[in-house]
């Protein structure tokens, strides 16, 4: 089975006036279906550029990128937009939901831009199904401002899933969340991955990366480490532990509690 992503000697150079910045200096990489990869690296390491390249938001200066067998480098702006719409799902650090728009309509958005648009009832059905996967079917008519950060991120994940992409890209999806909510969101990712969805996420938190299956470390525009995760964390268990700890904390503080 051919890989979902095949990068060969990808380079990306930004021109900043006279200065040339080599953000990515030759990365070759294969990502297969069902993988769950964490890309780690300090800021300025080139991990964001790599992510934008994977997301077809940015074009490499040189090298070839095959996404699901399609050569991305040769595509124009519109074709890349269609590719993003059909084969990729995005989850951002800042959620990037449309404000004052219900969760349902936010999730429907990628379908409105699809080349083969389905009927509005079918759109609603699919959006509700995607919200069901992330456990927010009950909140479909809520506005982003009425949802917690974790819930907003789950709406964003549902939006990323709704067109059944080949690859889910998450750019620091837990960056704006507290640790418990982070574990919850990682749980959503793990469940999706178990259902066969390929996920690539950028993070700079090692404990978050521990929920993935494979870690890439990027430094100075090159992949310096590429290894499977040892001692992988399972979100459901971690969550149980966290809740247990909370309960314990409540027990110990009970004599001083209001009741």
């Amino acid at each position: 089975m051919s890989p979902v992503v095949q990068l060969r000697d990808i380079r990306r150079t930004y021109r900043n006036g006279e200065l040339e910045v080599h953000a990515v200096r030759g990365i070759s990489l294969e990502i297969h279906a069902g993988e769950f990869i964490a890309i780690m690296g300090a800021s300025g390491s080139g991990k964001s550029t790599l992510m934008n390249t994977l997301g077809c938001l940015d074009r490499p200066t040189s090298g070839s990128y095959l996404l699901d067998g399609v050569d991305v480098a040769s595509l124009d702006r519109e074709a890349r937009a269609d590719l993003r719409n059909q084969k990729l799902g995005f989850v951002f650090q800042g959620f990037n939901l449309l404000p004052r728009t219900s969760a349902l309509e936010n999730v429907e958005l990628p379908m409105l831009y699809a080349q083969n648009r389905v009927s509005s009832t079918e759109m609603k059905r699919r959006a509700m199904a995607a919200l069901g996967i992330v456990g927010l079917a009950q909140r479909a008519d809520h506005l982003p401002s009425q949802l917690s950060g974790g819930q907003q991120q789950r709406v964003a994940i549902a939006r990323a899933l709704v067109n059944e992409p080949r690859l889910l890209l998450a750019d620091e999806p837990t960056g704006n969340l507290d640790s418990k909510t982070s574990v919850e969101v990682m749980g959503v990712f793990q469940r999706l991955n178990e259902q066969g969805i390929t996920i690539v996420m950028v993070t700079h938190e090692l404990d978050i990366a521990q929920y993935c299956k494979r870690i890439l470390v990027v430094r100075d525009g090159l992949v310096v480490r590429d290894e499977p995760v040892t001692g992988r964390l399972i979100a459901a268990e971690e969550l149980k532990k966290l809740l247990g700890a909370e309960a314990a904390a409540q027990l110990t503080s009970a004599p001083f509690g209001a009741k």
């Binding site: 937009a81 269609d82 993003r84 059909q86 995005f90 939901l97 958005l109 990628p110 831009y113």
Partner: peptide, 16 residues
């Protein structure tokens, strides 16, 4: 502009 960015990222064409 941000809204436009979101729309572009998830597959809107310029002309959309």
């Amino acid at each position: 502009t941000r809204e436009i960015g979101i729309r572009l990222a998830i597959g809107a064409h310029d002309r959309d």
